[in-house]
Nucleic acid binder design. Sequence first.
DNA 1: GGCCGCTATGAAACATGTTTCATAATAAAA
DNA 2: TTTTATTATGAAACATGTTTCATAGCGGCC
Lengths: 331, 331
Amino acid sequence: MASIRDVAKKANVAACTVSRVLNGSASVAEETRQRIEQAMKELNYIPNELARGMFKQRAGIVAMLVPSIRHPFFSSLADQIEKELYQQGYKMMLCSTGDDIAREREYMKTFRSNIVDGVIMGVSNLKDEEYEAFQKPLVMLDHKVNEEIPVVVSDHRTGGILAAQKFLEGGCRNIIHICGLDAPEVLSFQSHRALEEILSARGVQVKAVEIKWSNFDFDGYLELAKMILEKNPEIDGIMAADLPAVAFLKAARQIGRKVPETLCVVAYDGTYVVDTNLLDITTIVQPVKEIANRSIGVLVDLLEGRPAKPAMNMLEVSLREGNTTKSRIPS
Amino acid sequence: MASIRDVAKKANVAACTVSRVLNGSASVAEETRQRIEQAMKELNYIPNELARGMFKQRAGIVAMLVPSIRHPFFSSLADQIEKELYQQGYKMMLCSTGDDIAREREYMKTFRSNIVDGVIMGVSNLKDEEYEAFQKPLVMLDHKVNEEIPVVVSDHRTGGILAAQKFLEGGCRNIIHICGLDAPEVLSFQSHRALEEILSARGVQVKAVEIKWSNFDFDGYLELAKMILEKNPEIDGIMAADLPAVAFLKAARQIGRKVPETLCVVAYDGTYVVDTNLLDITTIVQPVKEIANRSIGVLVDLLEGRPAKPAMNMLEVSLREGNTTKSRIPS
DNA sequence: GGCCGCTATGAAACATGTTTCATAATAAAA
DNA sequence: TTTTATTATGAAACATGTTTCATAGCGGCC
């Protein structure tokens, strides 16, 4: 690999002059510049980004940590994030934890070693102190650590409210909510709070069933869905992420439950998984593009020393009405 | 950020001694070691991987370039690749081109600048010379450049043959194959060749319709599918990647075509998209795990200077029979 | 003619961790 | 006791690109 000094030697100048040509950082005589450019071409020279990054204290890479890369929500989000980063001149390092805490901790440690400039945390199972001790710019998704570390989050409370309305309109009395792990900092749990608040007030039962996001396996979801529906025939409403929601629809069909007549289903996320379904699924849609845009906006501002935006970034969700819920109950 | 010299100063030793403790590369007196470890802890020291990589000429990162990160096949593959890389001590940089040649070229240039050690190419729209000129270890997926650059590929020919048999069993006479861009180096096109070879010999029509993998949008596929089915009522067989295959199933239902009675559908890839469908879809399954395993195996051998395996790595596909094809035609 | 200021360029230092070579000190062998 | 081997450690060089500071050359101005 040709280095800047090889180029310098070939062009009969000092290394610093080559550097000046590379960066346009100072004036170089036209004749010298041409000689240097010629030498670079002949040696097929490409500057070593590691060395550059060492000096600049910048790697040009942002890490994103998610529970699973193939999960449709996270792969859609990573896709958008990579596009945003590309536009801002950064590359994306994408890592998954499989919801394994040790792995999350290990990756966080790696990220501190100057190999990335900042991190988007799409998973957060460590203790708050561990995020606070992280000395680089960090953007948390769906998880509030403190007033300092920026968070980007969908308005899950509204998501819960919109879903609750659908269940009420459908006359449902027993709802199951398939959700992520419960923890006060996990903001997506707000949807559950809202759901419970509204529905309990009307005497509707709401039960949470927790599952992990990683290592998702559709057949597992399907079995779970069948079991739940068979053991609890009184269940008449389901809220779940796209994939488990679809599993419930498939299970319902297999055991002969009519949707939406005797079972209302609301999917949560709005990835392409709901689009591919033969049914038109009622869905709470998270604004993936805006989440990516805001996350990278906030992170890059931090990285490049621009004034910090507010730490809390809440983005609107929307309801897409399908026919897995009833529009109005005949009274 | 504390550097190795700060640690050295605090522990009253030279930097090289700290380095020896870090790497266990030479003997250090027990008492000195403890003093150094203490200093590292107090300073919250983490070695700078950029500097390390510069010396070692190794970044510890492998790039993967795909047309789209959210495409289910590529996100599943990237997921497995990341897991394999993790086990081998590498991190994954995941980049997408959106099938844009300029972007692919730009990323390839970036990858040469020592920021990654090697590349897995899940997309390949450049000229062969450009891959040949790339001076780092490279593994191509589904694309043979020459006898030197390693390729990992599914046995698409067998995939085509298996599908052809299903169409013959179902008595289909007019097949449409939705496929990627035609190019002699794109090995996935072998499935089309096989399909055509076998079916033409039996007087069955086969037509290829080319689409791009990136920026896939299910509604677009759905429109395309409807248009094709409506304009060509004679079509009675479809082979397509999971997502467009599902689009055809949805389109068929919307315009009242019976599957499999009057339309046989074979999906190609076998991602979770086929699992989520309410129908049990006949599918040619690519061995994603093996592709990831083999790709990283070959790449890491190259990176670590182990003897090269054969350049061509062909992996078996399998057929998963569902009920979107007919098992046997009543004669 | 002498001083000012600008352009072009190089030498050297720096970013950080690693390695080679040299040296001192101690232990073992003769 | 002297020689040899071994252990522990540091100084300096290296990997590569960037920046600061110094210097030389040249045109313009009074």
